[in-house]
Design a protein around this nucleic acid. Structure first.
Length: 884
RNA sequence: GGGCGGUUAGCUCAGCUGGUCAGAGCGCGCGCCUUACAAGCGCGAGGUCCACGGUUCGAUCCCGUGACCGCCCACCA
């Protein structure tokens, strides 16, 4: 920003790169590991996937965290924002697999070691992208101490947790029903399953003949192919229709197996025929029922998604869909299908691959969660961990109270390989293979969320008792979106309490999810995603911005990081919100406004005596200060207090918009405009000097207060202000000075501003030309100190009310009236119409107040203060009407 | 099937513990190049605060029911 005089607009592109470099060079992002977690401030970033590119969620969350980090840094706290990325097993493995595919090879062809080598190379090459993008937003995360969930030390921590939990009996291996993802060829956890509504299937009613005598039992199913694995038919114990059949057997069509008829409470008597085929191998409920009744478990569908040998020769090798068609055809031939109807229901799909989940019995590693859940529930219930907004606490507690075992093994190659070795029937759990030959390691890796659950302490060097752990654990805040409250947040609390002996964070802030402008989810595949950096640096608008379909939505201007940060904060709330480009524009306007306000002050007072007075120079006792000075100093205290309180309360939208209102409204529209005459060439030099000090003081403190939200422009302006040293980012926030709060000045200014607004509106409505100075007599109380400013701002000239002046109009302002003198510039007809309108408004308001006060109930039951206020209001309105 | 949140100006949203609470930004209209900013300034128009009941002296705000939208959880074949 070389030429303040010529540069009339703030150009973020020119400034931001330079400012960023200064922050990074200053080392402010990397704190010394000293002191205690109590006195320090720390946040652990939700580690983005190494595969990831910055999306709107990252940008919002990054901004929120940076605001908190900057704010606390400016409070003088040693501040660490733990940074790193997640190895993201599935996502990363798929990325690299795709790459291999394009090279005409595959991971199988490469083999495990070579494949992992390729993933590491890939990570080396692309993994740093998202970190660089965070920098572009001004995020002051600790770039000098970046972590990765596959780092060697991190890996050791993961293995230790696995081994310890295994030793404690919480981790075990079992044949159990899992959600099998045929697309991924891996088990996935319950949380990675997405239930899709409205799937249309056919519900088949199939007759199973009784083994003894005539008769049949008809069961209903949407998956006839699974009947090949049936091992029973169940009815409700109280169902009298079938009571006599319980204990008998039926014959499974096509297979010939004899199945017992069992009684189980799970069966609904009013669904279908009230008889349920039991397939423990391929249905989670049937699995439970089967275990209750000691039924056999037959698997006819393999992990490859094809029918297996147990399905019988006729079906083995078919896909599930093919098998279904053939089973149905075969049943038709037998005449065993009694009915078929269209059936709409919900069906589980894999969030990872999109494939329909196939419930299978499989040998997997599980983690028992009940024992860990209790303390994690208590942590929230007793307020050690506070979730904001509070309503999310209930979701958290509900989920933990109903928690089920977690399937933690994944059939992938990229991730933390499970530290278990097998030799024949022997099993050994440990970080390294045991002595002796022939040990083979379990090929599976751990669910990515297993390692993520250790993030807040494993990044700080746990299990070693490092100075970092001492200084920054527990962290202060975790900021995240709602969708990973269970997936991640709850698990961090559980494992933090278990292994790091303390909660991982004191506050959890659950932020909005930003939707596309049309209300849909932001997603790359839908084309509704918006690249935050396209907003910062300019770039094409996505098609969702088109006013009409197919229309070219044009380009984003380069709004700059401050504008994007401001916009995101201003949009955020406790619920999901639509993306609003206007809020970003508002941020841009604010940055520009602040720049121009500073420019104005510096160009006007430049090197005037007193211009280098920094803060702390303004004392409450300073003489000769006018009412607007006292007012702005008072308002400055208010915005300082409010901004801090709003940020502490995670009310980011209000913090951002509050700054906007103060800077745009109070500081620029009112204060700077009002004091302009005091800076003129013919102004009183002493007053000018005093004013210069106040202006600089107010600017400095405003800029410092706004810095966490719009760090770039404020840092730039800070350097331009006289009397400042060093980086704003490392300065301390201006102290509150309660003595400068001045209710009396605020009241006077409120009154003056209201009068100015009314007088301007009057001018406009009666068609007085802007250049005209209207002559009038001020006949109102409470303007002793502001009359001159009121006249200036409203372009009036107040003269003493001589009896000979012909009054043509009377403008009601708080505390009295302004009597307008006759003049060619006033359209009397318009003035009269305007007056009559006002009288009408007054009459109706008076009538309303009178009616209210005539209501006996109101006078008797409403609080006396309310009634009194209503009476006072009526008096005032009547007096005003009198004056017309 | 449960649970949660939403429905306020043309658009996106604020409105705390019921009584100047009907607001902001953008958009729109009118007027201004007033020597910080025309990405600016001033003024203005626009809303039975989803519907219907109830509580209350008084309801956008509290309660109930319904409609529509969104999200979460859930093992009805």
């Amino acid at each position: 920003m070389s030429d303040l005089q010529a540069q009339t607009r703030f150009e973020p592109a020119e400034v931001e790169a330079r400012i960023l470099e200064r922050w990074l060079d200053a080392g402010l992002v990397h704190p010394e590991a000293a002191g205690s977690a109590d006195e320090n401030f720390s946040i652990a970033i939700p580690p983005p996937n190494v595969t990831g590119a910055l999306h709107m969620g990252h940008a919002l969350n990054g901004t929120i965290q940076d605001v908190l980090v900057r704010c606390n840094r400016m409070r003088g706290k040693r501040t660490k924002w733990i940074l790193g990325t997640d190895h993201a097993g599935i996502a990363t493995q798929r990325q690299v697999e795709k790459l291999l595919e394009s090279e005409g090879t595959s991971r199988e062809e490469l083999g495990r070691d070579a494949f992992q080598e390729r993933v590491w190379q890939w990570r080396e090459r692309y993994g740093g992208q998202i970190v660089e993008q965070f920098k572009r937003l001004g995020a002051t995360a600790d770039y000098e101490d970046e972590r990765f969930t596959m780092d060697e030390r991190y890996h050791e921590a993961v293995l230790k947790v696995f081994i310890d939990l295994h030793e404690q009996g919480l981790i075990y291996r079992d044949h159990y029903m899992v959600n099998w993802d045929p697309g991924l060829r891996s088990a996935i956890s319950d949380l990675e399953v997405e239930e899709r509504d409205g799937v249309v299937d056919t519900l088949y009613s199939i007759a199973y003949p009784l083994a003894e005598g005539d008769g049949e039992l008809v069961v209903a199913t949407v998956r006839p192919e699974t009947m090949l694995a049936d091992t029973a038919v169940a009815v409700h114990p109280d169902d009298e229709r079938y009571a006599h059949l319980v204990g008998q057997e039926v014959v499974l069509p096509l297979v010939g197996r004899r199945l017992p008829v069992i009684a189980d409470e799970y069966v609904k008597t009013d669904f279908g025929t009230g008889a349920l085929k039991i397939t423990p191998g391929h249905d989670p409920n049937d699995f439970e029922i089967g275990r209750r009744h000691g039924l056999g478990e037959i698997s006819v569908i393999g992990e490859d998604g094809l029918m297996g040998a147990a399905a019988g020769e006729r079906y083995a090798g078919l896909t599930v869909a093919e098998a279904q068609a053939r089973v149905v055809a075969d049943l038709d031939e037998l005449g065993a299908i009694r009915e078929r109807e269209e059936y709409v229901h919900t069906v589980p799909f894999s969030q990872r691959s999109g494939a329909r989940v196939e419930p299978l019995i499989s040998l997997q590693w599980f983690m028992r969660m009940d024992e860990l859940a209790g303390p994690a529930i208590d942590a929230v219930r007793f307020g050690h961990v506070k979730i904001h907004p509070e309503s999310q606490s209930r979701r958290y507690v509900d989920w933990l109270e109903n928690i089920r075992p977690w399937c933690i093994s994944r059939q992938l190659w990229w991730g933390h390989q499970i530290p278990v070795w097998y030799r024949g029937s022997e099993t050994y759990v440990g970080a390294t293979a045991p002595e002796g030959d022939g040990w083979e390691r379990d090929p599976d890796v751990l669910d990515t969320w297993f390692s993520s659950a250790l993030w807040p302490f494993a990044t700080l060097g746990w299990p070693q008792r490092t100075p970092e752990l001492q200084a920054f654990y527990p962290t202060d805040v975790l900021s995240t979106a709602r969708d990973i409250l269970f997936l991640w947040v709850a698990r961090m609390v559980m494992l933090g309490l278990r292994f790091a002996d303390d909660i991982p964070f004191e506050h959890v802030y659950v932020h909005s999810i930003i939707q596309a402008p049309d209300g849909r989810r932001m997603s790359k595949s839908l084309g509704t995603g918006i690249d935050p950096l396209a907003l910062v640096e300019g770039g094409p608008r996505p098609p969702v911005f088109a006013k009409r379909p197919g229309e070219d939505p044009g380009e984003f201007p380069a709004y700059g990081a401050d504008a994007v940060r401001f916009g995101l904060l201003a949009m955020s709330s406790t619920q999901d919100v639509r993306f609003s480009e206007e809020k970003v524009q508002q941020g841009q306007a604010l940055a520009n406004k602040l720049y121009n306000a500073t420019r104005f002050v510096l160009l006007r007072i430049g090197n005037a005596p007193g211009a280098d007075a920094g803060w702390g120079e303004i004392s409450a006792t300073e003489q000769g200060r006018s009412v607007e000075d006292r007012w702005i100093l008072s308002r400055l205290q208010a915005i300082k207090t409010d901004t801090q309180a709003r940020l502490d309360g995670f009310d980011f939208a209000k913090a951002a918009l509050g700054l906007y209102d103060f800077i745009y409204g109070e500081l620029c529209d009112w204060y700077l405009e009002i004091v302009k005459p005091r800076l003129g060439d013919d102004a009183d030099p002493d007053d000018r000097t005093a004013l210069a000090a106040i202006l600089l003081h107010v600017l400095q403190e405003t800029i410092a207060t706004a810095h966490p939200v719009i760090p770039f422009v404020t840092e730039e302006l800070w350097e331009l202000l006289p009397g400042t040293t060093g980086l704003l980012a490392t300065s301390t926030l201006p102290a509150l000075d309660p003595q400068l709060r001045d209710a009396e000045a605020e009241a006077q200014m409120e009154r003056a501003m209201e009068a100015i607004r009314i007088m301007r509106a009057w001018r406009d409505s009666v068609g007085v030309r802007p250049a005209t100075i209207v002559t009038a007599t001020l006949d109102a109380g409470g303007y002793e100190q502001t009359a001159r400013r009121v006249a200036e701002r409203a372009r009036f000239a107040f003269v003493a009310g001589g009896g000979d002046a012909h009054v043509v109009a009377s403008i009601a302002i708080p505390g009295g009236t302004v009597a307008v003198h006759a003049s060619d510039d006033v359209d009397l007809g318009a003035a009269e119409r305007r007056l009559e309108e006002q009288r009408a408004t007054l009459r109706s308001e008076i009538e309303r107040a009178e009616r209210k006060l005539a209501n006996a109930g109101f006078v008797a039951k409403a609080p006396p203060a309310v009634v009194a206020a209503e009476r006072a209001k009526l008096e005032r309105l009547r007096a005003e009407l009198e004056g017309r």
